[in-house]
């Protein structure tokens, strides 16, 4: 992986790259089941969690991943930091790199910030942990992992190798416009062969879908009856003041996955959500907790998938020849 130093977009990986992450995630999932769920693979490496936008779950997930790989973890949040004292993002990351950091996990409210950080650094790797409305590649990877393993488990078969989601019909429902998860998932799911349909009111779709390998629908009921997976996105209440929706109540009535609507789903259909769930808004609590829901599994798989990403970026020196074995 010495060539690809960073994970900025899930599109950088391709089907083979996604498969490699998923395969490694299996081994790290096994590590997670051990009495001592930790391996020394990244001993001596330092990972900085640069969450310039607030996040609890993703930050904890990366922190757990790095620690289970025995990396040293330094955390950084924008409040109370040098950034609030006027230091630029560029100076901040370059100064940290000078202290001997091997990887930056970057979350930022502005799209492209991780790409820019990658451009400023001289040797450290960058993992995009969510940038604006652009991408959230590790979320899409853990969703692919969850989908492929969970479907195999429920069907009682081995997960397909290489990982494929061929022919799977996935409906992504909600605020596509502002969602980095949607962008990464559309890319990842379609790369693995799934058929993706975006279901949202026109105000919550991107200004242009040119080049997106998707169908679009404004009729959730019709999609539920024929999809294998319904992927529900969070509705952010702050969008309300920007006039994208008349009210949350109306959204729930037209696009919410209510108990009644969930009955339209096929018997083997899965319900996914990147979290955090606004129960009762985009997703009824009963549906979130139903057997069809794999939301908790998604969260659990996050650590193993992020271990795989960090290990691929940092775990091997890339130059063959000086190794010792036996």
């Amino acid at each position: 992986m010495s060539q690809a130093r960073h994970l900025l977009s899930v599109s950088d990986l391709g089907a083979e790259g996604i498969d490699e992450v998923l395969r490694l995630a299996d081994t790290f999932a096994e590590v997670g089941r051990r009495p001592i769920p930790r391996v020394p693979a990244l001993r001596g490496k330092t990972v900085v969690l640069g969450f310039f936008e607030d996040s609890t779950r993703t930050r904890m997930s990366f922190e757990a991943a790095a620690k289970r790989l025995s990396a040293d973890v330094m955390s950084f949040s924008s409040s109370g930091s040098s950034l609030s004292k006027g230091e630029s993002l560029r100076d901040t990351v370059c100064n940290l790199e000078a202290m001997g950091v091997d990887a930056f996990v970057v979350r930022h409210s502005c799209a492209g910030a991780p790409s820019q950080v990658a451009g400023w650094l001289s040797h450290a790797s960058v993992v995009n942990a969510g940038d604006g409305a652009h991408e959230h590649p590790t979320q899409a990877l853990l969703d692919c992992y969850t989908l492929s393993r969970e479907r195999a488990r429920r069907l009682g078969v081995h997960p397909p190798r290489p990982a494929v989601l061929a022919g799977l019909r996935i409906a992504i429902v909600g605020d596509i416009r502002h969602s980095r998860v949607a962008r990464s998932c559309v890319a990842a799911f379609s790369t693995l062969g799934a058929e993706v349909t975006l279901v949202a009111p026109p105000t919550l779709l991107p200004a242009s879908l040119a080049g997106w390998p998707v169908e679009v629908s404004h009729d959730l009921d019709a999609q539920l009856a024929k999809c294998d997976v319904v992927y529900v996105l969070r509705i952010q209440a702050e969008r309300m003041k920007e006039q994208f929706l008349p009210s949350l109540r109306e959204y729930t009535a037209t696009y919410g996955l209510t108990v009644q609507r969930a009955r339209l789903l096929g018997p083997s259909a899965l319900v996914m959500h990147p979290g955090p769930v606004c129960r009762g808004v985009e997703l009824a609590a009963e549906v979130a907790d139903s057997p069809a829901s794999v939301i908790t599994t998604q969260v659990g798989n996050g650590v193993a998938v992020r271990m795989a990403v960090l290990y691929l970026l940092l775990g091997s020196g890339g130059s063959l020849g000086s190794g010792e074995a036996g």
Partner: peptide, 15 residues
């Protein structure tokens, strides 16, 4: 500019 590229890049568009 709001359009194909802003939608793809996830940057807020200026119509």
């Amino acid at each position: 500019n709001e359009g194909e590229w802003s939608s793809r890049l996830g940057l807020p568009g200026r119509s």
